[in-house]
Design a protein around this nucleic acid. Sequence first.
DNA 1: CCTCGAATCTGATCGTTGTTCAGATATTGA
DNA 2: TCAATATCTGAACAACGATCAGATTCGAGG
Lengths: 195, 195
Amino acid sequence: METDAQSRENYHHGNLPETLIQEGAQLLAERGIERFSMREVARRAGVAAAAPSHHFGNAKGLLTAIATDGFQRLAARQEAAQAASTDREEQIVAMCRAYIETCAEAPGHAAIMFRVDLLDEGDERFRERSFYTFDLLSTALRAAAPTDVQADQISYATKTLWAAMHGLQALEMIEADEADALIRFAVRTLIAGLQ
Amino acid sequence: METDAQSRENYHHGNLPETLIQEGAQLLAERGIERFSMREVARRAGVAAAAPSHHFGNAKGLLTAIATDGFQRLAARQEAAQAASTDREEQIVAMCRAYIETCAEAPGHAAIMFRVDLLDEGDERFRERSFYTFDLLSTALRAAAPTDVQADQISYATKTLWAAMHGLQALEMIEADEADALIRFAVRTLIAGLQ
DNA sequence: CCTCGAATCTGATCGTTGTTCAGATATTGA
DNA sequence: TCAATATCTGAACAACGATCAGATTCGAGG
């Protein structure tokens, strides 16, 4: 049986999970998390209010899926940033820039990617992808440090840099005209701290 | 006319705004922001659901008041931390520790103090108190740096340290057994970056 | 002590939300 | 072809934030 537009509108959307993630991210970007609504997402996807629950269980499930998608985008950008240079320090600067840029370009995703309280931290895919982005930065810092630097020092530097990037973005402390200088200061200083 | 317990329960609570702030912070600590409810706060304060709106307008108003109270607590702790030592670096370490400890001891306040989207950023008292805590750190960093360091460098270091402390706390990346070492690494490294 | 305006709180109501559930509809594979 | 499965609907429910008229209490000025 062919699935024409009519029947696809009523039953069997076709790719509802993906659509819900996209519309959800869009709505987050427009309204922010405090005015986010599952019913509005369903409305925009053209399905009944109860439809999303069949795919994501509850609101936490959909938000976790959106966040997971966000971390995948971030990882792709980080990898591209790292590959764009051979200079260790320059690689890390680019990775941090990728972080800030990803949040700017996908504000809906960024609004919840680090909102641990709203997400299902037990979700396997989410854990994988979010840890992976952190590991990319950690590995890059290890490569940029002298070989005799201890593991805990690498850990401290990674956590500090990661937390700083998140904080600068979440608290809206980073302005476009000084973003580059601020990131360079943080990266250069933290790498120097590992000598 | 004496205000006995009976009449005070029905009308004219006595100190409702203060009670709402306390009960609100308590509820935030118990449930987190996602399950926070104005009606439940009113319920715990023993007043009708509409009562809070007369003092704080809406939910944003009450949350802003709680956040403002949190920044006042933070400022007090920061000042005490700074006064506890004469060593510049040690002062800053203590101020950062005060930040982490305040969030740990007042989790209800901490849950919203930096949730800019949920607060009324235009509120005068909130602006004053939140800016003041940031300025305390900024001033301390300036005092710890050589006199010829330019203002933008101080600004970068302050923002990075402030954002890092917020990120470490918000992302739950800081564990009790390594908190001190992690904070010391960040402070020492950032101060060294100002030389 | 009295009075009257101002401050404070109630109670009812409205539209909206997230979630659940039985049942309807479409797809798929044997 | 047909049954098993996946997918979606529609109605229902309790709870929410917000609004508003009106009831109650307070407090300053006579």
